[in-house]
Design a binder for these strands. Structure first.
Length: 552
RNA sequence: UGGGGUGUGGCCAAGCGGUAAGGCAACGGGCUUUGAACCCGUCAUUCGCAGGUUCGAAUCCUGCCACCCCAGCCA
């Protein structure tokens, strides 16, 4: 399942640590999501890294929810995140943990810091704290409460826990250095008072530990050998280390940072993604245009394609913006050899076959041009068929290889037809085409000697079922959307619905929702959304590569 | 102008002092009853810039420059 030729600076580090016996047991990693939103493809990179490394080195991985802020977290996200990690193809087995599992121990460690005179209770208001922190270029100033006695701090902290103070009135702060050039080391807040119920601990606690205090301790308690996180936490590493150095704990994981995934025409910001949902730009977190795992799933993207993508983008510390072409490539690549082919038309144009005598001719076609295991399906050819509007032109652009007046074209897996005449409406648009077919040109036994320039797909009227085809395009119209301007840069053409037809045989397939509609793209049948048997709903997973573009 | 991180082709990314891997994209050709897939081939005299060390530098040293992150009682 994994590619052991993958080498990146983190895997190199892990290898070295094993070789030089720097870790006693096996490799331990963790994926630590906060249950306050849905997982996106950026998280997938981290999931593949953490679970991938454990798998490659015979280690284990924890799925640990970082649930230290009851104000923004909820059980619903816990459920959704587990579903998405599983779907991506990873198994944490029995190792499902929550930072909140460790609240009692975390509290004890906090008391320990106080007893060692390494933390103090601070009464500064939010605004006062902000002002005393200084700025990027000015040092901060000591809190007037910094010199309280250990006893007073301990008593105050216990009263905080007991609920004697209102939300936000006091904090527990580390006693480090207000003049530190790294702002994170300027006596950071370790605990804050929040009178709110927590999705797991209910109202047991009214003080909640901050990320910086929690994360390192949880990593240590779980014996994490390599604590992998994204670059923006690099500035927090000194604090991660400080906490573990100043409490009595026997394990100290190294924090290693890598750059987060950037994807062109997308954003990974939970805030912006949420705005898109809230303001109805998209139908929800699982809208097929969203870079969320649930959105990709709904679009029909196989999890293996996402894993392949994550392996291909690599792991470094460089800022990156991956082109969407790479993701599309990975998707097509994993679908290519196993996905059934079928014919569909998006914008039906009726073609009347004037010289057909039988009501219908039964034909056979393979479900896949190369993969014979997929078998064959039957289709019919009859008096009225539909082709795509794009495949017919009165005045064709140069190099057009489809149907034109007086011209020939092959109908895929059927016959060669010749356009005899067209019917147009008052605007001049073609509403119907009259054609004759060459009986001797049947696919597989063509003796006609005719050489049409191209081949197009078709659906015979009485062999087709209605299909709603949802085509998706990039979420934003610019490669690097600006967070502040997401409304303007949202791509209004990112979702287009077509009402067309697919051949009947597709309807009977129940073991695989993925199809390639020849010449159109890979589509995903939504069993959930099909309102009835005559109205199938498909989402376009990814279009086919365009080998030819008409010049306008 | 404090601290941290990063600069190799259009986008990723190897490279770890011995003379620029690979993938995606693009472009040319072959094959083709999907303008798909597949197959061949082309695509960095040069590694942010300037100096220096060395027989030899993308790799070592010095100095510049550019970009990203940090001033939540978010993670």
């Amino acid at each position: 399942m994994y590619d052991d030729t993958i080498k990146d600076f983190i895997r190199e580090r892990v290898s070295r640590d094993i070789q030089e016996e720097r870790i006693s047991g096996g490799v331990v990693t963790r994926f630590p999501p906060e249950p306050n939103g849905y997982l996106h493809i950026g998280h997938a990179k981290s999931i593949c890294l953490n679970f991938g490394i454990a798998e490659e080195f015979g280690g284990i991985t924890y799925l640990r929810f970082d649930d230290t802020n009851p104000l923004s977290e909820s059980e619903a996200f816990v459920v959704a995140i587990q579903r998405d990690v599983k779907w991506l193809g990873f198994d944490w087995e029995s190792r499902l943990t929550f930072a909140s599992d460790y609240f009692p121990q975390l509290y004890e460690f906090a008391e320990e810091l106080i007893k060692r005179d390494k933390a103090f209770v601070c009464d500064l208001s939010f605004e006062e704290l902000q002002r005393s922190r200084g700025s990027l270029i000015e040092p901060g100033t000591d809190s007037p409460f910094r010199n309280r006695s250990k006893e007073e701090n301990l008593e105050l902290f216990r009263r905080m826990r007991a609920g004697e103070f209102a939300t936000g009135l006091k904090t527990l702060r580390a006693k480090i250095d207000m003049r530190a050039p790294n702002i994170n080391m300027r006596d950071p807040v370790l605990y804050r008072i929040i009178h709110a119920s927590h999705h797991r601990t209910d109202s047991q606690w009214c003080i909640y530990p901050m990320y910086d205090f929690t994360h390192c301790i949880c990593d240590a308690l779980e014996g994490v050998t390599h604590s992998l996180c994204t670059l923006e936490f690099a500035d927090h590493r000194p604090l991660y280390d400080w906490v573990l150095e100043n409490i009595n704990i026997n394990f100290h994981p190294p924090q290693i940072e890598f750059s987060r995934l950037g994807l062109e025409y997308n954003v990974m910001s939970k805030r912006v993604l949420n705005q898109l949902v809230e303001n109805r730009f998209v139908s929800g977190w699982d809208d097929p245009r969203m870079p969320t795992l649930s959105g990709l799933r709904k679009r029909g993207v196989p999890p293996a394609a996402i894993r392949d993508f994550c392996n291909r983008v690599g792991v470094t510390k460089q800022n990156n913006n991956i082109e969407t072409e790479l993701l599309d490539f990975c998707i097509r690549n994993t679908l290519e050899s196993t996905t059934r082919r079928a014919m569909a038309v998006k914008q039906p144009l009726a073609v009347e076959i004037t010289n057909i005598e039988a009501d219908e001719l039964v034909l056979e076609a393979p479900w896949h041009p190369k993969n014979e295991e997929l078998g064959v399906r039957t289709l019919t050819f009859g008096r009225t068929i539909y082709i795509d509007h794009d495949d017919f032109a009165i005045s064709p652009p140069p190099k057009f290889r489809r149907l034109v007046p007086g011209g020939l074209v092959r109908l895929r897996y059927a016959f060669i037809i010749e356009c005899l005449d067209v019917e147009r409406d008052e605007d001049g648009t073609v509403t119907k085409v009259f054609a004759k077919y060459y009986p001797s040109s049947k696919s597989g036994s063509d003796s006609s000697g005719l050489k049409p320039k191209g081949v197009i797909q078709f659906v015979t009227a009485n062999n087709g079922v209605k299909a709603e085809m949802h085509d998706y395009d990039r979420l934003f119209s610019v490669p690097i959307p600006r967070q502040e301007k997401f409304e303007l840069e949202f791509n209004p053409d990112s979702h287009v619905v077509h009402h067309g037809f697919v051949e009947k045989a597709v309807f009977a397939i129940s073991d695989d929702p993925n199809f390639q509609f020849e010449r159109l793209g890979f589509y995903f049948r939504s069993f959930d959304e099909s309102p009835n048997q005559d109205q199938l709903v498909f989402h376009r997973t990814v279009p086919l590569n365009q080998g030819w573009k008409p010049k306008l």
